[in-house]
Write a protein that binds this DNA or RNA. Structure first.
Length: 594
DNA sequence: AGACTCACG
DNA sequence: ACGTACGTGAGTCTC
C-alpha cells in the first residue's frame, strides 16, 4: 500500500508547496463535506506526483489558500478524477484552477461511453487488478449514509491519498489508450477545455422567480383537486390517480372499457397518454385523466421541485451539467434537469417565465436550426440535401417537394409534416412501421415513401448503409471528430437486439457530431465572451440551444458574436445557422434579427 | 430497486 | 400478425 504523508504543520505545508512548485504535473483531490449535494465545508486535499507516495493536507478553506499560486499556475499541470468538482471546490475557496489537463473520469468515459459508472473504485481494479477503498466504506450508503465531515481525519487521509496515487498511475495508462484509439485529440482539444466552461456554468447558475412558481403551484393544487373530484364522480370510484395499476383496474375492469389494440407493458395494459388518447371517445373520464396527468406532472416535477433547489446563498439554481453520462457525447443535466423544462402549452410558458434575468439583464437564447439534419447532409455528402441547405430552403418543404415532384409552394401542411417525420426519423434509423405510425399513413404508403426518399437522397441511403456496415466490421461507430460508441450487441444472435444496436449505430454519429459541434461552440464562446461583454454569462445548454444572461446594452453585440461563433464552430459541407431570441425571461422571448 | 410515465432535444 | 424511432432525468407507486 502506498504511503500517505500527513501535512499537519505550517512548516510541512511550506515544504509541500515548494515541492509542488517544482513539478511539471501533479494529481490533486479536494475532499469536501456535502449537504444535499451542495459542498458546504472543505476538509482537506491530497496530492501525488510520484508512484507509491502521496500527501494529505487536512485543512479549511483559509488554509488551502497556501496552495493558491500553485493551483493558478497554468505551467504546472493538474490531473485528477472528476476535476469539475474540484474546480468548483477551489473556486469556493477563492482559487481559480488553471492548467487542468487530465481528468481520468473523462478519459475513461471517452474510451467507453457506455459504462454504467466511472467511479475510481471500479476503474482501478480493471486497469491494475488491485482494489481501492470505496467511498461507501467511510460513509456507508443509503439512508445510513453519513457526511464525510463526520469521518476521522486519519481515515480520510488514507482514503484520499490512496486515490490520488492511483490516479497518478492511471493517467499514464489512459493517455496511452486514448492515443491508441485516436481519441487523444478529442480529449485534449474538446473535452478538457470544456470542463472549466461547464464548471463556470454550474457556479453561475440561473435566477429563478420562486414567487411565480409558488403562485401557480397553489393554483395547480386547486385545479388538480377539482379534476380529481370530477373523475371520481364520472367513474363512481375514488382511487389514486397517480397509480397506473389502480387506473387500469378502474378503466378496464370496473368500467369495462375495451382495451383491444392497446399496448401492453410487463405488468399489463399500458395507460400512457398515447394509449389513453385512443380511448378518448369511449368514456368522458379519459379526457379528464389526461388533463390530470399533464398538470400533475408539471406540478410535482417543476412547480413544486424547482423552488426547493434554489441555493439560499445565491438565490439561484445550480444544476449539474454532466460530461460523462451519455453514450452519444451529449451532455446531461441533473439536480435539477434543466434540459427538460417544459416548453409546450400554456403551463410550459408559465414555468419558463420563472427563469428570469436579473434587473438590467436579458435572457438571450441561441438555437442551432436543424443541426442534426445538417450533420446528416454533411456526413452523407448528399448532393440534394446539401443543395437545399445551401439555398437556405425550408428543408421539410423542400423534401416534400422533391419526393412528390411538386413545386415547393404547392406543398400542403400535411405533406410537409410527413416529410418532417421522415427527415426526423432518418437520424433514428426508423423503419417503415414506425414511419407509418408517426405520419399516420399505412405501412405500404410508408414503404413507398421511404423508397422515394432514398431515391431523392441517395447519399443519405448510402451513408446509412455504410454506417451499419462499419458498425459490424469494427464493433463501433464514430462522430466527425472521432468520438466513439462501441456496440457489441450488434453481434447478438437475437434479431431484435441486433436491430436495436443498428439503430443506435445510425443515430450516434449524427447526434454525437451535433453534440461535438455544440461543445466546440461553447468553448469558443466562453473564450471570447468576456471580451465582448464582461458581465454576460452562459448559463444553460439544451443540446442545440445555448442560454445567456446579458446586460441590456450588450444584447446586440453578444447576439452577433454568439451567432457568428456558433456558425463557425465547425466546418461542414453545409452552413450552420442559428436563431436568436431575447426576453426578460426564458418564457417570454422575441426573435432578434441580427 | 424496478416499473411506469412523461418532461425535453 | 405484430414488439412500434435516438438520447436523457425525475416523480410516483409498488414490492
Amino acid at each position: 500500500m502506498a504511503k500517505v504523508e500527513i501535512i499537519d504543520s505550517k512548516k510541512k505545508i511550506e515544504d509541500l508547496v515548494k515541492k509542488l512548485a517544482k513539478q511539471r504535473a501533479f494529481v490533486f483531490n479536494i475532499e469536501v463535506e456535502e449537504k444535499a449535494s451542495f459542498p458546504v465545508k472543505l476538509l482537506g486535499a491530497s496530492f501525488c506526483f510520484e508512484k507509491q507516495k502521496s500527501f494529505y493536507v487536512p485543512c479549511l478553506k483559509s488554509e488551502i489558500l497556501n496552495f493558491k499560486s500553485i493551483f493558478e499556475n497554468s505551467k504546472i499541470l493538474k490531473y485528477g478524477h472528476d476535476l469539475k468538482r474540484n474546480f468548483e471546490a477551489l473556486k469556493h475557496a477563492g482559487i481559480n484552477l488553471d492548467g487542468a489537463t487530465f481528468d481520468t473520469m473523462i478519459a475513461a468515459y471517452l474510451l467507453n461511453p457506455g459504462a454504467k459508472t466511472y467511479k475510481l473504485e471500479n476503474l482501478i481494479p480493471t486497469k491494475f487488478g488491485e482494489k481501492i477503498t470505496p467511498e461507501e466504506e467511510l460513509t456507508g450508503k443509503g439512508r445510513k449514509k453519513i457526511n464525510l465531515g463526520q469521518v476521522a481525519m486519519e481515515k480520510i487521509s488514507l482514503y484520499s491519498g490512496e486515490r490520488a496515487e492511483a490516479v497518478w498511475r492511471l493517467v499514464e495508462v489512459l493517455k496511452e489508450e486514448l492515443r491508441e484509439n485516436e481519441l487523444l485529440k478529442l480529449f485534449e482539444n474538446l473535452e478538457m477545455p470544456l470542463l472549466p466552461v461547464l464548471a463556470e456554468m454550474e457556479i453561475d447558475g440561473v435566477k429563478i422567480d420562486a414567487r411565480l412558481l409558488k403562485k401557480y403551484s397553489k393554483q395547480a393544487e386547486k385545479d388538480l383537486e377539482k379534476i380529481s373530484e370530477k373523475i371520481f364522480k364520472l367513474t363512481k370510484t375514488k382511487f389514486n390517480l397517480d397509480s397506473p395499476i389502480q387506473l387500469r383496474e378502474v378503466l378496464f375492469e370496473k368500467l369495462k372499457i375495451n382495451p383491444a389494440g392497446l399496448r401492453r407493458g410487463k405488468t399489463g395494459i399500458s395507460t400512457e397518454a398515447g394509449e389513453l388518447l385512443k380511448l378518448k371517445d369511449t368514456h368522458p373520464a379519459i379526457d379528464l385523466i389526461l388533463g390530470y396527468r399533464e398538470l400533475s406532472k408539471l406540478y410535482s416535477t417543476y412547480l413544486l421541485a424547482l423552488p426547493k433547489l434554489i441555493d439560499s446563498s445565491t438565490g439561484r439554481i445550480h444544476a449539474n451539467f454532466n460530461q460523462t453520462v451519455t453514450a452519444t457525447g451529449r451532455l446531461s443535466s441533473s439536480n435539477p434537469n434543466l434540459q427538460n423544462i417544459p416548453v409546450r402549452g400554456e403551463m410550459g410558458q408559465i414555468i419558463r417565465q420563472a427563469f428570469v434575468a436579473p434587473s438590467g439583464f436579458k435572457i438571450l437564447a441561441a438555437d442551432y436550426s436543424h443541426i442534426d439534419l445538417r450533420v446528416v447532409a454533411s456526413l452523407a455528402n448528399d448532393k440534394n440535401m446539401i443543395k437545399a441547405f445551401r439555398a437556405g430552403a425550408d428543408i421539410h418543404r423542400e423534401t416534400a417537394s422533391q419526393i412528390w415532384n411538386i413545386p415547393a409552394e404547392k406543398v400542403t401542411p400535411e405533406l410537409r409534416q410527413a416529410a418532417k417525420t421522415i427527415n426526423f426519423g432518418v437520424t433514428y434509423g426508423m423503419g417503415a412501421r414506425a414511419l407509418a405510425l408517426g405520419a399516420g399513413i399505412t405501412l405500404d404508403e410508408a414503404k413507398q415513401f421511404i423508397s422515394k426518399y432514398f431515391t431523392v437522397y441517395e447519399g443519405v441511403k448510402n451513408f446509412l448503409e455504410e454506417t451499419r456496415q462499419k458498425a459490424h466490421d469494427l464493433g463501433f461507430v464514430e462522430t466527425l471528430f472521432g468520438r466513439r460508441r462501441y456496440l457489441p450487441e450488434i453481434y447478438s444472435p437475437v434479431p431484435q437486439i441486433a436491430a436495436e444496436a443498428e439503430r443506435m449505430a445510425i443515430n450516434m454519429p449524427v447526434q454525437g457530431t451535433a453534440a461535438d459541434i455544440m461543445k466546440l461552440a461553447m468553448i469558443k464562446i466562453a473564450v471570447g465572451l468576456p471580451k465582448i461583454s464582461s458581465s454576460s454569462k452562459m448559463i444553460l445548454q439544451v443540446h442545440d440551444e445555448l442560454v445567456f444572461e446579458v446586460p441590456d446594452r450588450d444584447v446586440k453585440k453578444v447576439a452577433e458574436f454568439v451567432k457568428e461563433t456558433m456558425a463557425g464552430a465547425a466546418k461542414l459541407k453545409v452552413p450552420l445557422a442559428s436563431q436568436i431570441e431575447v426576453g426578460k425571461s426564458w418564457g417570454k422571448m422575441e426573435h432578434l434579427e441580427t
